[in-house]
């Protein structure tokens, strides 16, 4: 490894260790409900939800609540994927996710496995991603935090009849640990220019603009960037994106195909998979 890589590794570890203590203190105070503004903000939520935050539960009630909550999560996420075709925020007009894939994804995201057995951008509507997948990213993580807390309380209290309140733990983990952290990370991503909007996809438009006044993507000669992007764009018609309205891309593809040694992308596939 280079010196820069070692420095990066050391800086990362130092930052991680330096953040562990203050973050742990924050999590402890927030999950314990010791912060005054947290108490004030939570009070109306408990009233709305009909939860007595001081009323602790035994392990059976706690477990049952956790299982019930996540079972409802599976149902909601499955239903959302199956119904996305008739729901709003679906500018690409995606149909329902296939029942087996929808069930797989629902179970996977509720259990924090987050296995993406689907092509995100060509399968899930914005609504499904925001109201289903992203919500479960929070709730499954909150479930993990709640389980750890219940376990710690069970150990720490030796012989106690209760291990906390599952609804209080889930709400506090989500509101005061996961949401603030994700807000900070979202700002970092936005600061780096990550695109996030509710508009229809603008596939190929950026590329068309880049090639309008240039023969190649980088510099004045073909580079690995051209080869790489060509390999993806060659599949655009199969993915439902016609290349008709993009003359600069069409001309660029012809230039690549005229390069010495060019072979079609399918020639890279194993013999049995070739069309």
């Amino acid at each position: 490894m280079s010196a820069a890589a070692w420095v990066q590794l050391a800086a990362f570890l130092a930052l991680l260790l330096a953040l562990a203590w203050p973050l742990a203190r924050w999590i402890d105070a927030a999950m314990d409900g010791r912060l005054a503004f947290v108490q004030r903000l939570e009070a109306p939520l408990w009233r709305l939800a009909g939860v007595q935050p001081g009323a602790e539960q035994g392990w059976r009630a706690y477990t049952l609540g956790l299982l019930l909550f996540n079972a409802l999560g599976v149902l909601a996420l499955y239903a959302l994927q199956r119904a996305q075709g008739v729901l709003p925020l679906n500018p690409q007009a995606f149909g329902a996710v296939a029942h087996d894939s929808a069930f797989n994804t629902a179970v996977s995201f509720v259990t924090n496995t987050n296995w993406q057995g689907y092509g995100g951008e060509s399968t899930m509507s914005y609504l499904t991603q925001m109201l289903g997948l992203a919500v479960q990213n929070f709730l499954s993580a909150a479930t993990g935090i709640a389980v750890v807390l219940a376990l710690v309380r069970g150990f720490a209290r030796h012989s106690a009849a209760s291990i906390g309140n599952v609804w209080v733990d889930l709400v506090r983990a989500t509101l005061w640990v996961l949401l603030p952290l994700s807000f900070v990370f979202a700002l970092a991503l936005a600061g780096q220019g990550v695109v996030q909007n509710l508009a229809p996809y603008t596939a190929l438009k950026t590329l068309e603009g880049a090639l309008a006044n240039a023969d190649w993507l980088v510099g004045r000669a073909p580079t690995i960037a051209d080869i790489d992007v060509y390999g993806a764009v060659a599949y655009a018609p199969q993915a439902g994106f016609g290349l008709d309205g993009y003359p600069a891309i069409a001309a660029w593809m012809k230039r690549i195909e005229a390069l010495p040694g060019f072979g079609p992308v399918t020639s890279l596939l194993p013999q049995a998979s070739r069309p």
Binding site: F37, R40, L41, A43, P44, R47, P88, L89, P91, L127, L198
Partner: peptide, 30 residues
């Protein structure tokens, strides 16, 4: 449909925000 949905979601979020701010400012009423 998207605009209606977003407007409804926005109103709901605004109502929750007002509710929480009110709870923060006048906790004795909650």
């Amino acid at each position: 449909m998207d605009a209606v949905f977003l407007a409804a979601a926005g109103l709901l979020a605004a109502a929750l925000f007002v509710y929480l701010v009110a709870a923060l400012l006048r906790p004795e009423d909650f």
